[in-house]
Design a protein around this nucleic acid. Structure first.
Length: 537
RNA sequence: GUCCCCUUCGUCUAGAGGCCUAGGACUCCAGGUUUUCAUCCUGGCAACAGGGGUUCGAACCCCCUAGGGGACGCCA
């Protein structure tokens, strides 16, 4: 297979007018876009951002926008996460006409419910010779990648199982050997496609891995599922984060092998942290629910997101979603990754708040105070501690709104020195970053583990955390407080407390990371020993 | 390390060869209105990453370098 063959076949499928403006040519396919979140955590701002642009673009073209749930990761996907993500999108006034909750003619809209469909196409690909079963163990793959990396090469499957005769492979599969299905990719030449925002992009096939299409649990990977679903759901434009650019060759290969036309692709820039890395919960509140809980208005957040990488033709800063839709065009998208700037969002939100009438303001403020029954949830914490209702507000101030700003002095008087306080905050932050759930008991377990590991009394360990969370040495119970505040607010307060204590130097970061890792490893080892003892008795 | 993407004030951006002495917004600073604060008003600081081309002319086109980001998973 020659270079030109591939370049041509894949380019020709994506030749539609790049950066074309408002009116689609007569008789053109209906514009259909989608957001395809993976329900593995909190609703991420990046998801909302991409969703917004997909919806706005589709609507600006008189097209349709839909939601599909990419829950092929059995271990991490949860229904709760799916529900909060859909809630968050709705909160932002992002609307879809097809999706897992509203149904539609192209369903089901949950990939876990479409398993048979993928299986069929995987079989087809294998029988066509475009894919093959692979029996390699993780150990072998790890070793292979380590070697490749050491040699300075891109890691890539070496094709070992490709040479197994189909009959032999069938025998192994019949015998129940664990296997995956891998995609065959060209060994040389260059792939090229037209990105609607970036023009021609070329990627050498050498760089493209023989991607797994079907996992050993029978679920498809993203790559198979996305191509199959986008085709079956008649998606005309794939607008997604630029992190996907390197996957386009695989997807194009699949479209080609299945005889399908590839949708137009537009890779949007990624939202960034202030240090310009990709927006992450480690460094920033990334959950849409955080912004809801902090009292941002959905229209302000949507407006702000619309200003990320896009501008109104008249440079207006403040605009509604319908106004954005009317003025929208792809060519006004700028490609530099925009930094998510909370200061500017705060200003914008203030503009929206000030523009409200007093009645509207009152109504929305009350709705915010009482949202999700949060005041009721505080009652168990304050009930026994309250003599007069007037005592309530001072007790819960840090739970209902921001806590006081901190200085290093606020951490004095504690039994732990400032260095140790920093270590406590740092280690707590690291453990919270890794933890999946966010309930009182889980938080408690994390803290006891860390306190033991640092050989501190729990009470002393918790001292700096009380200050970091509540802004004072005495607050309502800490674990309940953190649970109520949510993971993003908790992390944010810990980070800001660390700043108040002078920040953590590069050197110290390294030291902390080392000590935290050692501590976690030790505690895990203990758990294993305990388990053994238990089972022995 | 390999490949890909990106590059205008600290941040979000305008700018598609002469309209640029580079405009707006946020932040910050100064002044004014206001009993404080906030709002509001006025003003100020502040950028075309560097180097080569192309052109009568380059922030805009091309090349190189640098910097930033991303990808390299049986995660998406």
């Amino acid at each position: 297979m020659s270079k030109s063959q591939y370049a041509m076949s894949s380019t020709s499928s994506a030749t539609s007018p790049a950066r074309s403006s408002s009116n689609p040519p007569a008789g053109a396919k209906k514009v259909r876009t989608r957001i395809a979140p993976s329900p593995t955590g909190d609703p991420h701002m990046g998801t909302a951002y991409i969703a917004l642009f997909n919806m706005v673009y589709a609507h600006s073209q008189g097209g349709e926008f839909l939601v599909r749930i990419e829950d092929t990761d059995q271990a991490r996907s949860t229904p709760e996460s799916e529900a909060t993500i859909l809630d968050a999108l709705r909160w932002l006034n992002i609307e879809w006409t097809e999706g897992p909750d509203v149904g539609g003619p192209h369903g089901p809209y949950r990939q876990s419910e479409r398993q048979d469909i993928y299986r069929g196409y995987a079989d087809q690909l294998v029988s066509q010779g475009d894919a093959f079963p692979c029996f390699c163990s993780n150990e072998r793959l790890d070793e292979m990648r380590a070697t490749q990396r050491a040699e300075g090469k891109t890691t890539r499957y070496d094709g070992l199982c490709q040479s197994i005769a189909p009959a032999e492979a069938a025998k192994q599969i019949a015998a129940g050997d664990a296997h995956v299905i891998r995609l065959v990719v060209p060994v040389d030449g260059t792939f090229s496609f037209e990105d609607a925002l970036r023009g021609t992009i070329e990627i050498p096939w050498q760089q493209v891995d023989m991607q797994i299409l079907l996992k050993s649990d029978g679920m498809p990977t993203y790559h198979l599922a996305v191509v199959v679903d986008d085709h079956l759901m008649e998606i005309s434009h794939v607008m997604r984060g630029e992190e996907w650019i390197n996957s386009v060759p695989k997807h194009a290969r699949l479209y080609d092998a299945l005889g399908w036309e590839m949708p137009i692709h537009a890779h949007l820039p990624l939202l960034r942290n202030p240090d310009s890395s990709k927006l992450s919960k480690r460094k920033n509140p990334t959950s849409v629910t955080y912004y809801r809980d902090m009292g941002y208005l959905p229209e302000a957040v949507a407006n702000y997101l619309g200003r990320m990488g896009w501008s109104m033709p008249d440079e207006r800063e403040i605009f509604s979603l319908p106004e954005m839709q009317d003025a929208f065009s792809l060519e006004r998208i700028s490609l530099g990754g925009p930094v998510f700037d909370i200061d500017k969002l705060n200003w914008l939100n203030g503009e929206y708040l000030r523009a409200l009438s007093e009645d509207e303001f009152a109504e929305r403020a009350i709705a915010w105070f009482t949202q999700g029954n949060r005041l009721r949830a505080l009652v168990p914490l304050i009930h026994q501690r309250t003599n007069r209702f007037a005592d309530i507000a001072p007790q819960v101030d840090y739970l209902v709104g921001d806590r006081a700003d901190l200085t290093a002095d606020d951490f004095d008087h504690k039994r732990v020195a400032s260095d140790q306080a920093r270590q406590i905050l740092d280690h707590a932050l690291r453990s919270f970053d890794e933890s999946r759930g966010w309930e009182r008991d889980g938080i408690f377990a994390i803290c006891t583990t860390l306190a033991e590991g640092l050989e501190l009394k729990l009470k002393d360990f918790l001292g700096p955390l009380f200050v970091a969370i509540g802004g004072k040495a005495v607050t309502l119970p800490l674990f309940d407080s953190m649970a109520l505040l949510g993971a993003d607010v908790t992390r944010m307060r810990l980070r800001s407390a660390l700043e108040a204590l002078g920040g953590v130097s590069k050197k110290e970061t390294k030291r902390f990371e080392k000590s935290w890792r050692a501590l976690i490893a030790r505690s895990e080892a203990e758990i294993v020993t305990v388990d053994k003892e238990d089972s022995g008795s």
